[in-house]
Design a protein around this nucleic acid. Structure first.
Lengths: 114, 114
DNA sequence: CCGCCACGATCCGGCGCCGTAACGAAACTG
DNA sequence: CAGTTTCGTTACGGCGCCGGATCGTGGCGG
């Protein structure tokens, strides 16, 4: 994809996200949710912290938010009860599907020059 | 573009943006910068506020940030000295070009399954 | 058993963004 | 010319996120 087309796409996605009344997630929250949704499990707080490159408290707080939205759930690892496994919920899948739809649509739409 | 491919693309872009040590802009700041960079001038505070759908003070603050980064500059409108015209600087163009490069690259890259 | 380490959550002070309201300056209106 | 409207900015109180330090819990080794 060309750089300018990519920017235009990004612009349209942001505009959609801002207007669509989707719960507005921070960059980190969204990255976290996408990671959990797209990457193969298992996902732990520590792993997410290392992979995504932000602190454990930040991960915990982002999870608090996503759990509050019911997009994600925590589950104690039965193997090692110190760890917490993070999984996408049905509602989380639905949300990501909507987001994907929105993003996919933005790819085709023309860039309405104001 | 397929919904899932779009999500994967988005994920990669966010990961790049988080790691690349680009100055981290909020969603609104980025949307504002992209708007100024991609849409035809003139751009005023009022117009940006209406088009992007957030309050004038929020626009002023986002501009403060972008001006501080030297991506954008303010200029009094000689026609109507109440208005302020917003323009992209050279540095802003450069930044957007880098961002576009990063985003364009993310389109082709495979989704490295952790 | 007991000390040590790993894990995730919580506490803390700080900072940045938020929207409403109020402001000065400039332009319009009669 | 006052009076009103339209600019953008600033003042204000509130809220959410930040990372470092600390905590309780659970696993592990001697």
């Amino acid at each position: 994809m060309q750089a300018e087309a990519a920017l235009a796409w990004w612009y349209r996605v942001l505009r959609s996200a801002l207007s669509e009344r989707l719960p507005d997630l921070t960059t980190r929250q969204l990255a976290l949710l996408l990671h959990v949704g797209l990457m193969r499990p298992p996902h732990t707080v520590r792993g997410l912290s290392q992979t995504l490159g932000f602190s454990k408290p930040a991960v915990t707080r982002a999870l608090d938010r996503l759990v509050g939205l019911n997009y994600v759930e925590r589950q104690r690892d039965p193997r090692d009860r110190r760890s917490v496994l993070i999984r996408l919920t049905r509602a989380g899948e639905t949300f990501l599907a909507e987001l994907g739809q929105l993003a996919g649509d933005a790819a085709g739409a023309p860039l309405a020059v104001a």
